[in-house]
Write a protein that binds this DNA or RNA. Structure first.
Lengths: 558, 558
DNA sequence: TCCTTTCCACCTAGGTGAAAACCT
DNA sequence: AGGTTTTCACCTAGGTGGAAAGGA
């Protein structure tokens, strides 16, 4: 029981789990409570940064330049190099970083940089006023967050995670006659915050850097009792995604004694063009058009005029000369599903082909629609004490929005954040990007608490504030291999896969320690074969601890 | 360069990768070489255990009972309990198993048991003579290997892997007029052996035990130059899958000095009813019928007589009175795709409705078709030296088939294998199962070589025979959530999902150390939310190292 | 002749917005 | 009247065996 006493999280979890069904009845109460606070503050024509104090805390890490600057860089340097985390101060690192492995791997000087992929498409939505559907069952984002990360320690393990912050404490409504979003009151009460950990986590820096990291499997929901792990958001609110790069220091499972380490750098990256308003049905028809034009799954609603030979076009054309009946051979029928597979097909109920940039739908909005001013972007430079690097992030935001006692956390958990703007040299994959970069080195003790630990055997702790979560990655989807939603209009209808920069299964280098830390004689050659998309292989000759002399040494991570 | 010198695997890997394209031209040469060895040895009416010496090595771990015994248990006890792997003998375990964490977790006395799910379906195929299609692009197995594992240490991390062994060194051909498989010569030269590591690996024993472990994403190929990570097999050969339970001792990354530990238990599980013959096109029409009847993806080929109202039935009915043309309204057309969505539809090219057990197709074969006699099943009890537990497994099989110098490995790497039969009490999920169980405790040093290590930072080794592979799990599919191909005929057409025994996202306990080893104060409550199918969440309040006092503590693994 | 490869129709599984129904 | 839920047609993506073509 002494062990159980140290596990309040688990016990609370189970209690919550058992009460889920009981809570369903309370859902309406929650909604009523939510609407109770919905006060019409009066229409604000332009969603002004009146929430500056509230929203700025979640934006201080954003791209410092104006939204139009595609390739700006936000560099955040911390005062504590990672080497300080070695050895005695963080003994947990000792067993992991062996004295034989050269500790000179420059994880302490890494300038982590995160590039938003598909920034052009994000900007096109942003110019209109991005809307994201949220449903009870969960709805994907479109565009999905897709980033390219550079500057990681190739041999360090990282978790990549994403959460979504409220931009302000306002509720919005869309005024159709003016085609504008207006403040409709204060924000609803906060929902259970959730973080989407990229299913490939943890992985080596080399692995992360080799590919576009897509969050396309992430789903948004408005069901506060969601049990599917989706991110819970309020409808008609403004939010902004945020990407986290979290070092997986193996110390937290290994070190029985863990002192509170010094601050080692902030690791959250957000992009102003990814701000969106949550809706349950699209409000702005320009958004609808752009979604239909760009999302392959909405191809059935495209009506771009060309290749308009779908079923309804067929119906119309035939109906022209034979109104309701015609003689068909069955050779016609198998072709029907294929006809819709072209670049576009038509639907009579769709609005006639009008590009999303059509003046007829351009409502004169709103590069500032989301309440961000250039001043907000320049407000990311902060410095304070050295306890927690996430001071002005979610915890602070929530504490401010909820007026909870955690407000004080923001004060005693400042971040070492220094920012500098660099040029735009990050056109990886030929796609426009927005990039943020910062130095990351270690991790705060609090971060360690939330880091799942696949190596849980023999977990131990001599301090009551340490824990590890293991094997959290079950059922991980292949998120890295989702669509590459091209930001190029000419590629919009031909989605391409997000591929590793190396390409094929045997064509790319393996992960992390595979490259220069493995110590295997040829006869013991190990064959880590990880599928380009789906599978993970060893050379089975080595499974028995033996390999044939003719073993084909091939390993791959894609 | 000293570091690189220790990485022959990586360098060979890259060299191989770069030569893949060059090797494509050599594919035909390989095939020619393969056919060169194909000698018709004359038909053998019954595939006898003439391969006893050759094939027994890969079968010694099989179910000791006759195939008809559904729930037999194969217990293999080793002479070295896991406790011997603690501390000094395997210092790598020291840092992982903290002195604070109670080391009394009975990993050393665990009787691991592996139950084959869907054994009834496997047996139905086996009675006919299971065939598995292999294609260049890779083809899934049907039925897929699905197992339930019990007896793991809940807090120990494990890899679950699968490889496929040749049953003998023969090549087969199917004689249509006698509906029998006959030996057609010696086996082709061995192909690059590969192992499919379950994409959820590594995970805690608790996590593995909570759910059915499905290998449905595994693919078989006959392309020896496959770069997708599929398992490469020869066509017209007999194979048998094998499941591996591999402890993830974090010691291999942590211990700079690793002596060769003592044997700690065999960990491979195979089931005789899963033997199959590889084909590029089905030979036995009974197999075809059973596949079509049971595989949901082949529903389009079902012709079971009932609900036969698909398009072709429509064609036939209309063609009866209007041979080649008929007048259709367009109201017919949208319904066409839906018509095929029922329980079954018909196809004119299919044979008329005849259940798979129809005498018209029952060719009088062959419960012993796969060359296994009851004597084979009783031959699993072996004992020998204590150096390697995989002695009679792949390495030995390959060495015998290839006459390579690794033959000696089999002699100096015997296994501690003791077997005992238990009753049939493993009807988990209400499905018939076949189970194998054995004690596993530690791992051999050779096993450690092939164990990917997600905690690679600071990997080190003072011995040249140690290595770790990290982050091999990228792009892992959600294999645990594939179809549950029911073995019950009445459920065959209604596939059900393989669910965790706990159910919903918030309704099940978290993994491994979440349950009783985490040490989190409520204010630091960590919220590891891992989606039931797709996603992995933290409570985002904790991402900043801070959680609100009102934090909802919920964690989940399935 | 025997086996392999390729293409295809037909499925499963699930992601879209539209539209209607529903709710408050 | 405004927001939410449900259902639906239409997609993407990919797993089936059949049939025909290809190949040795």
């Amino acid at each position: 029981m002494a062990e159980k006493r140290r596990s309040p999280c688990t016990m609370s979890l189970k209690a919550h789990a058992f009460s889920v069904e009981a809570l369903i009845g309370a859902e309406k109460q929650q909604q009523q409570k939510k609407k109770r606070k919905r006060v019409e503050d009066g229409a604000v024509e332009r969603v002004a940064p009146a929430d500056g104090t509230d929203g700025a805390s979640s934006l201080h890490l954003q791209q410092p330049g104006p939204p139009e600057l595609e390739h700006s860089v936000c560099s955040i340097l911390t005062s504590s190099p990672c080497e300080d985390t070695y050895g005695v101060v963080k003994p947990g690192n000792g067993p992991c970083r062996s004295p034989i492995t050269p500790p000179a791997v420059p994880s302490q000087t890494t300038l982590v940089r995160v590039d938003l992929q598909g920034a052009e498409l994000w900007k096109r939505f942003h110019e209109i006023g991005t809307e994201m559907i949220i449903t009870k069952a969960g709805r994907r984002m479109f565009p999905a967050m897709r980033v390219k990360i550079t500057g990681l320690d190739p041999h360090q393990q990282y978790y990549i995670a994403m959460d979504i912050l409220p931009v302000d404490n306002k509720r919005y409504r869309y005024v159709y006659h003016s085609s504008k979003w207006m403040v409709a009151g204060n924000a609803d009460s906060p929902v259970p915050p959730r973080v989407y950990i990229h299913p490939d986590s943890p992985a080596s820096g080399e692995t992360w850097m080799r590919q576009v990291i897509s969050f396309d499997k992430l789903k948004l929901t408005n069901n506060e009792l969601d049990d599917q792990g989706h991110i819970i958001l309020h409808s008609m609110h403004k939010y902004q995604p945020r990407v986290h790069v979290i070092r997986k220091d193996c110390g937290e499972e290994l070190s029985p004694v863990k002192p509170i380490p010094v601050v080692e750098g902030e690791k959250a990256f957000s992009f102003p063009e990814t701000i969106f308003t949550t809706v349950t049905a699209y409000q702005n028809q320009q958004i609808t058009r752009l979604k239909i034009d760009r999302n392959p799954f909405a191809k059935g609603f495209r009506d771009s005029g060309r290749n308009r030979m779908g079923l309804e076009a067929l119906v119309e054309s035939y109906a022209f000369w034979r109104p309701s009946l015609r003689t068909l051979t069955f050779e016609d029928i198998p072709g029907i599903p294929k006809q819709g597979s072209g670049p576009a097909n038509s639907h009579a109920h769709m609005l006639p082909g009008s590009p999303c940039s059509s003046p007829a739908f351009h409502i004169g909005a709103n590069s500032q629609l989301c309440g961000l001013t250039p001043a907000d972007y320049s407000a990311c430079g902060r410095s304070s004490l050295a306890l927690n690097r996430y001071s002005t992030t979610l915890a602070e935001t929530y504490s401010r929005l909820t007026n909870s006692t955690s407000e004080s956390f923001a004060q005693r958990t400042p971040s070492y954040v220094g920012m500098s703007m660099n040029g735009n040299d990050n056109d990886t994959f030929g796609c426009p990007q927005t990039s943020l970069s910062m130095q990351i080195s270690g991790m705060s003790p609090q971060l360690q608490y939330i880091m799942p630990s696949p190596t849980s055997n023999g977990f131990s702790s001599s301090q009551p504030h340490q824990s590890s979560y293991n094997a959290f990655r079950l059922h991980s989807p292949c998120a890295l291999y989702g669509y590459n939603f091209s930001t190029s209009p000419k590629l919009a209808s031909s989605p391409e896969r997000v591929l590793s920069s190396q390409g094929s299964f045997l064509g790319s280098s393996p992960s992390g320690t595979m490259t220069d830390r493995q110590i295997l004689p040829p006869v013991e050659g190990v064959h880590l074969l990880s599928s380009a998309g789906q599978q993970h292989f060893f050379d089975s000759r080595s499974l028995g601890g033996l390999t044939l002399p003719s073993s084909q040494v091939s390993a791959h991570m894609v």
